[in-house]
Design a protein around this nucleic acid. Structure first.
Lengths: 237, 237
DNA sequence: GCCTAGGTCCCGTAA
DNA sequence: TTACGGGGCCTAGGC
């Protein structure tokens, strides 16, 4: 029996199903009128209303309204769920530690509960990431400039790892920061921190910084200008 | 009739329900074996497996597996959903423009479909945000230092808006960057950009920068040190 | 529409 | 465990 469903159950019947779903590692969906209380890194309350609530076997909890991609409340994976019936409400509490957080969903009425056994899965294959852009550039370094010679990826510095580190035809060090989409000021600052670290480490003030991205905002461009860094427009494919 | 459900429907029956749910602004959940294809800012394929798929009346689409808080695939609000039956599969395509993106969910078998009418709602009240921290500091500016005098919040500069701008007892400008949680290098760089902008704008090299957060990483601390900025540890109550 | 930064960001990876 | 940066980030608020 892979799916168990109840329509407008009593709190006690819902409680039974929910409890066994938590025990048996089922994926659980609930729809009904509820209020939600969260306390942890922040704190929130959500007054009564109809929501779709999802509990996953990995400890995730999601409270969704009819709008937006983001859940209005949630608990990350690693939490533990616990159901109880009290004061005429079905309460489901999800707790975790580090940080200590607690999410309470109080159902006044449950419209539907469904428990699914998820056995069949496969993994996502995604292309177009920053990693793909890096490989594409390493395969044709001339898109940076003629004679550019990559030496290392993820080269460690005191400021963190550099996306691509290399040398130009004059043998000067080049720090490349890659972004797969349009960049703002933070990417320019990130590049600045890396160039600063390499300049210090190599005692070579001729170290160049190049920001590689499909496009760039005005403020980011003026930061690059100030620091005498360069920009290469590179579209991902 | 607020809820309509089908268990192991034919593709044609599911198609009917899905279509009317899209038309009538219902919140739709589906569970079944499907594959998923996405193309847009990136591109991805997800092989056959059992997933929970959610379609919202605002155009949101979510594909959830049994793990993680994040959907494995999705479409943001503003997309339009369209169902069809072809090649023995129930296909639901969600498209949007700017950027142009397309999400196809191909159901090989639908275990459950549910359509919910969501009429009852209320809004989230959240506390503990950076805005709350700002108000708390404005009410007692001495937590920054004795005699600190706030002048403006969100003060505009060429580099962007400053969280809190003020003066110290010596009448020197003070730029405050607030963070509600532990900060890393990016927050220090952000502060640096603002202090730089104010220093230039006021032609006052004595401009002070203060980072206010519950805690700080070593790299962030050494950046503050280099730029001669200060740090105040402030817990959000 | 773009820009900027916050977020209970989540998430993976490396130290 | 913490630190750091990517993300199809999403979302809100300005302009």
């Amino acid at each position: 029996m892979t799916t168990t469903r109840l329509h407008r159950p009593t709190h006690r019947d819902a409680f039974e199903l929910v409890g066994s779903a938590f025990e048996n590692g089922r994926l659980l969906t609930m729809f009904g009128r509820c209020e939600v209380h969260y306390d942890g890194r922040a704190a929130s309350t959500l007054g009564p209303g109809q929501r779709l609530v999802i509990y996953k076997p990995d400890g995730t909890a999601l409270v969704h309204t009819a709008e937006n991609r983001e859940p209005v409340n949630w608990q990350p994976p690693g939490s533990t769920h616990n159901a109880s019936v009290r004061d005429g409400q079905l309460q489901i509490r999800s707790t975790r530690s580090n940080p200590t957080e607690q999410l309470d969903v109080l159902f006044e009425r449950v419209e539907t509960v469904s428990a699914y056994a998820v056995t069949d899965r496969s993994d996502l294959k995604l292309t177009g990431s920053e990693e793909d852009l890096r490989q594409w550039i390493l395969n044709q370094p001339e898109v940076i400039e003629k004679g550019f010679h990559p030496i290392a990826t993820e080269r460690q510095t005191k400021a963190g790892p550099i996306d691509i580190f290399g040398e130009d035809t004059a043998g000067q060090p080049v720090v490349i920061e890659l972004k797969r989409r349009r960049v703002g000021p933070s990417a320019a600052s990130q590049l600045q921190r890396y160039v600063e670290a390499i300049t210090t480490e190599l005692s070579n003030p001729a170290t160049r910084g190049i920001l590689v991205a499909p496009s760039i905002t005005d403020r980011a461009a003026s930061l690059l200008d100030k620091w005498e860094f360069e920009y290469r427009s590179v579209e991902i494919e």
